[in-house]
């Protein structure tokens, strides 16, 4: 895609007439995003039927190299975009999360097709993950089973528009422009069934509850009475405590301050939760060799969280000052 010089030059800074078309003044974000959006390298990585349509999109008739995406890299270390093209199974989500963690930032995820978006026709299957967004942040969802190449192109263009709207300065919107490392996505564990490390505490609580009052571990949540009448579901345990109400939105029109407040609240909440589950968070280095991978990752996450909180506080102070 061409960089429109006329468009770029429309700034508040006057450019002398004889320098026009030779000098362009624009914002850093704009030129940076222009570069990124037009060299979005997808990972060469197919899961299921959708991968075939992805290949068709890459081939001559549809040809997504017109949008700067022809360089599909087989290694996550060189790719910017993960096209999750097909059904994500419990067995496969572990490598997928690992691959995502290996991708350098800025990175994007496109859920291609019904399965990757929400489980699709195979949703009820015992080995199927109901959408990759249960484990990874998704930027664009493309519907279809499979989406036609045109639909995938549309999704890719939607992603480009999303990139256009991002700003290097907005740390909250685009976390990777902050300082330091971002949190890796927690890698699920294949136990008796797949276990999301973020839910360890919840599973433990449910198991304890089931053991103490003879309840059911996999209790169904309560549904509206209209639904209950129809479903006639057997045992319904109480709904778990709903997530703490979102902190009241600050009335300040400064978007950034509000976002920071939200983030701090989130961090504080998760800190509390983490503290209650792992009373003595062990530093990663001092983990015994028999340490379990998820414990290790929790400890690392804890450290990261503290560091991030400190950074954020410092940044907030600076803004106020």
């Amino acid at each position: 895609m061409e960089l429109n010089l006329q468009e770029l030059s429309k700034t508040q800074y006057p450019i002398p007439a004889d320098l026009q078309n030779n000098v362009a003044i624009t914002s850093l974000s704009k030129i940076y995003n222009w570069g990124r959006r037009n060299s979005m390298w997808p990972m060469l990585f197919g899961l299921a039927c959708c991968a075939i349509e992805m290949i068709a999109t890459a081939s001559s008739r549809f040809d997504f190299s017109r949008f700067g995406m022809e360089v599909m890299r087989a290694t996550p270390r060189q790719s910017d975009l993960m096209i999750v093209s097909g059904t994500v199974t419990k067995k496969m989500v572990v490598p997928i999360v690992r691959l995502y963690n290996q991708m350098p930032e800025p990175k994007y995820v496109l859920a291609m097709g019904a399965c990757a978006s929400g489980g699709g026709p195979f949703k009820e299957g015992y080995n199927v993950v109901s959408g990759i967004d249960k484990y990874l942040p998704v930027d664009v969802y493309v519907p279809g089973c499979p989406p036609t190449p045109q639909a995938l192109l549309f999704g890719l263009i939607a992603l480009q528009k999303k990139i256009d709207g991002q700003s290097i300065a907005d740390y909250d919107d685009v976390p990777w422009y902050g300082v330091g490392l971002s949190d890796p996505a927690p890698v699920p564990i294949l136990g008796p069934d797949i276990i999301d490390p973020r839910q360890m505490d919840m599973i433990r609580r449910q198991a304890e509850k089931a053991a103490s009052d003879g309840g059911v571990l996999n209790a169904a949540r309560s549904l509206p009475s209209a639904a209950v009448a129809v479903l006639d579901a057997p045992a319904k345990a109480a709904k778990p405590a709903p997530a703490a109400a979102a902190p009241a939105a600050s009335e300040a029109d400064d978007k950034r301050a509000a976002a920071l407040a939200r983030k701090a609240a989130r961090a504080a909440k998760s800190e509390g939760a983490a503290a209650s589950t792992t009373p003595a968070a062990v530093p990663a280095a001092s983990l015994p060799s028999g340490g379990k991978p998820w414990e290790e990752s929790e400890a690392i996450r804890e450290q990261r969280k503290q560091a991030a909180l400190a950074r954020k506080a410092a940044r907030a102070n600076k803004t106020e000052g």
Partner: peptide, 10 residues
């Protein structure tokens, strides 16, 4: 309907 909000059953 699932208490863990996911397709899991322990």
């Amino acid at each position: 309907r699932n208490i863990f909000g996911k397709n899991v059953k322990y």
